[in-house]
Nucleic acid binder design. Structure first.
Length: 799
DNA sequence: CAGTGAGCGAGCTTCCGCTTGACTT
């Protein structure tokens, strides 16, 4: 007989708490929610006041059985899930599913995992807050209704298997709208002028003064004219302005800010950051990693203080409490911080160490003194000109928290390194060393990175710490958006340099607008977004969630009944769903590009069953072609479309079989007698490739294939060496070879036995791997896009 | 270092939040 059964959400938490409570207490974990709306169907009885239909989640069946058993045998059950909407609901679902008795159940909450906090909680139990539970039910039902009512509309009107939701659809909309802004953006050419000067009589090794002209030039003539003028001009310090400045440390990490900094500083994807943080948490190095709070416990602040005073001294200390500003924050946990402030580093792999170190420094820095700076602005007059040069310098008078940690900026351009300036006074004469003008182009608004999208979502109050990373991967899995790096436009620009009495022109090659690991919308993403904005404007509104949250707050405070909130939402929503189903046209985003000059056939783009396609003509004469990576239906031109339609193209014959060039899902390839060969990226152009080159590629491919072939049997079964070691291929399916067997020695009988036993790896079809499987690998190792990544990489890999 | 087409029959797909799974496919 157990005296007390305590149930928390996370197993790591359970272990710690059990240590604190000791004898008479057994601490178990629910692993999050244990029940949810029915997996199949709507799961909400809209006819009967939105009665939710709950069931124990498939993977929680045995756990619930076990907990029920334990609860039966204990005197008191303590429901210690988190103190927020979801946590309260978990407590209630446990109460229901475990069939607990009201008088032997106590609901407790604690904000930090310390012995004191837990003992205090045990002394102050309360009842389950039904209003808060109802708010969660309303949230859950709302999301189910939105998702499960709108998605089928998309299947009917656009393409099967698509999805829509309160969070994901808005996330995609942000990306689509940014892309449109970029398409509309008209870049402007300008010339940026900068100069290097030296103070006269400044001694042997004078500190150079680097300054920038306060005005940009729009035209080349103006620029050159100015440089010519500078030849004879004199340069005088006009004004020296010195201002003190202070800089404050950033607050401790939340999930969102951790993801942003890890992306900027360490180049981690959001899911990578989360799985690393999970490991740190499980190993007891950091506090819980899914939080929206910047709050630190008193214990943590005290320990941080101690570390700062001991290592840096009293003057570096400035203890502070931060308050959370983000919308809809529920603050069930602390900020993300080291469990032990005195641990500067931890064991673990390189990436874990990097992430830990960042958390450690940020946490300590948050309790450190402001940095004191002195900013100097020097204005330099040019004789015979109203334009001035401006030099800015910064001196750190006291580094304060900067000694520990410097937050990085979203802006990709490294914030201009502030330079040291020599001591200057108004009226000082400066000697010109070099003045240069560089041709530049105004930059379009940046595309979102995964992390900057999270930041935006958080600012809009959309999504929760536990869903940021999954949401980002969902919209990529659905092929609404993709994360890509694209080289910018290569351009020849010019630079004019004035040194001595000479203005020289120098041509340069530069890339403009290179994007690294940015989110690009797909055609499907764009068409779906447009469709949803047209027919479900309220749900696509950036304020939809914020407004819903207001109503949910009313429910939580008992001012509004949850069914009544849902009823108000559902009536017009449902009518709209029906109307859209009935009245709207099938929407494939079709766009007519023009006609084929030779045949007069109409050329258009649209979403086909398998994605975006170019179509030419109709009926018997119809031809199709897929779009290339980077091409969008919205921006593709008639010429580009016609180019795509030139394929497949017959190059000629080789060994009495046709050699064909075509463009497939993975780029251009050669087809010859059952053999497919990818073109060499960079070297081969599918539009002009010769038969000879194609034959060469075929021979190369044969060579490679023969090396991959370990064994081949009469019936076509084959043992090949692949990326993950040897495997069997037979009838278009692949099979795994048990570790106990040697691929080189497998007999025909053994091979067929493996095939018959199953153990199939992945069906070789054009369809993608089963999404369920993807999901598991995803969460596991942060390999979120590993599969796609390798396919993308492949062409570039051939040196 | 695997895989490379496309308007039809049939049946499936889908949400957001809590939590960690573990045949390296």
């Amino acid at each position: 007989m157990i005296e007390n059964l305590v149930i928390v959400e996370s197993p790591a938490k359970a272990r710690t708490i059990e240590r604190f409570l000791g004898r008479g207490y057994m601490v178990k974990s629910s692993f999050g929610h244990i029940r949810d709306l029915k997996k199949k169907d709507l799961g909400v009885d809209v006819e009967h006041d939105f009665q939710p239909q709950y069931e124990v989640t498939a993977d929680k069946k045995t756990l619930v059985k076990e907990l029920k058993q334990l609860a039966k045998g204990s005197v008191t059950v303590w429901l210690a899930s988190d103190e927020d909407r979801e946590g309260e609901a978990i407590a209630w679902h446990l109460f229901e599913a475990l069939e607990l008795k009201p008088d032997s159940v106590k609901r407790i909450v604690f904000h930090e995992i310390t012995k004191e906090a837990i003992l205090h909680a045990i002394k102050h139990p309360r009842a389950i807050d039904q209003h808060l539970v109802d708010a969660q039910q309303a949230r859950r039902v709302l999301d189910r209704l939105v998702g499960f009512k709108i998605s089928p509309v998309l299947w009917k009107k656009i393409k099967s298997s698509l999805s829509a939701g309160r969070v994901q659809s808005v996330a995609v909309r942000l990306i689509v709208e940014r892309e449109r802004e970029i398409n509309r953006f008209e870049e402007q050419k300008y010339y940026k002028v900068s100069g290097i000067f030296i103070a006269q009589d400044a001694g042997e090794t004078p500190l150079p003064v680097k300054a920038e002209l306060s005005e940009r030039f729009a035209s080349r003539d103006e620029t050159v004219q100015f440089l010519e003028h500078c030849k004879e001009a004199t340069f005088t310090v006009n004004d020296v302005e010195t201002k003190p400045a202070t800089r404050k440390p950033a607050p401790p990490f939340t999930t969102s800010t951790l993801q942003q900094e890890a992306s900027r500083k360490l180049g981690f994807s959001v899911s990578q950051t989360m799985s690393l943080a999970q490991k740190l948490y499980e190993n007891g190095h950091i506090t819980y990693m899914r939080t929206d709070s910047v709050n630190l416990s008193q214990l943590a602040i005290n320990n941080a203080k101690k570390v700062i005073v001991e290592t840096l001294g009293e003057k570096y200390l400035h203890a502070r409490q931060y308050t959370t500003q983000s919308k809809g924050a529920q603050e069930a946990h602390e900020a993300i911080r080291p469990t032990y402030m005195e641990k500067e580093s931890i064991s673990g792999d390189m990436k874990e160490q990097q992430l830990y170190s960042m958390i450690y420094k940020r946490t300590l820095a948050s309790q450190m003194a402001d940095a004191k700076l002195e900013r100097t602005i020097v204005t330099i007059a040019v004789s015979g000109q109203s334009r001035t040069f401006v030099a800015t310098g910064e001196v750190v008078l006291f580094d304060g928290f900067l000694r520990m940690y410097r937050e990085s900026l979203d802006d990709e351009k490294e914030d201009e390194q502030m330079e040291m300036l020599p001591v200057l006074h108004a009226g000082d004469r400066l000697q010109r060393k070099r003045i240069e003008a560089l041709e530049q182009y105004t930059a379009h608004p940046p595309r979102y990175t995964e992390a900057s999208l999270v930041k935006k979502l958080e600012a809009l109050g959309i999504g929760r710490p536990s869903t940021y990373a999954p949401t980002i991967t969902t919209i990529q899995n659905r092929d609404y958006v993709s994360r890509e790096s694209r080289m910018g436009k290569e351009r020849e620009i010019e630079q004019f340099i004035l040194t001595g009495d000479q203005v020289t022109r120098k041509p340069l090659i530069r890339h403009f607008g290179t994007e690294k690991r940015k989110l690009f919308p797909s055609d499907v993403g764009i068409v779906v977004t447009d469709f949803l904005c047209e027919h479900f404007a309220d749900i696509m509104d950036y304020n939809f969630t914020a407004k819903a949250e207001e109503a949910l707050d009313d429910v939580a405070e008992g001012k509004l009944q949850w069914q009544s909130m849902i009823r108000d939402f559902y009536a017009p929503f449902h009518a709209n769903v029906e109307k859209t189903l009935k009245e709207s046209e099938r929407n494939t985003g079709e766009r007519v590009l023009g006609t084929d000059p030779s045949t007069g056939a109409v050329v258009c783009v649209r979403i086909g069953r398998f994605g975006p396609i170019v179509q030419m003509g109709e009926g018997e004469q119809v031809r199709y072609a897929g779009l290339l990576k980077g091409q969008l239906m919205e921006t593709i031109t008639l010429e580009e479309a016609l180019d795509l339609l030139k394929f497949p193209r017959v190059l000629g014959e080789y060994e009495e079989k046709q050699v064909i060039v075509a463009i497939g899902r993975f780029g251009p390839y050669i087809k010859h007698d059952q053999l497919y060969v990818a073109l060499k990226k960079g070297a081969d152009d599918p539009a002009i490739i010769s038969l000879d080159t194609a034959i060469k590629r075929i021979k190369e491919k044969r060579e490679i294939d023969s090396n991959r072939r370990i064994q081949e049997f009469e019936n076509g079964a084959c043992i090949l060496s692949g990326r993950f070691g040897p495997y069997i291929t037979y009838n278009k399916s692949n099979y795994k070879i048990p570790k106990t067997q040697d691929a080189n020695l497998l007999t025909f009988e053994e091979t067929m036995e493996i095939i018959e036993k199953g153990g199939e790896l992945k069906v070789k079809t054009t369809s993608k791997a089963a999404p369920k499987k993807e999901k598991t690998t995803k969460a596991t190792r942060g390999n979120v896009v590993k599969a796609t990544k390798t396919t993308q990489k492949k062409p570039t890999k051939t040196k």
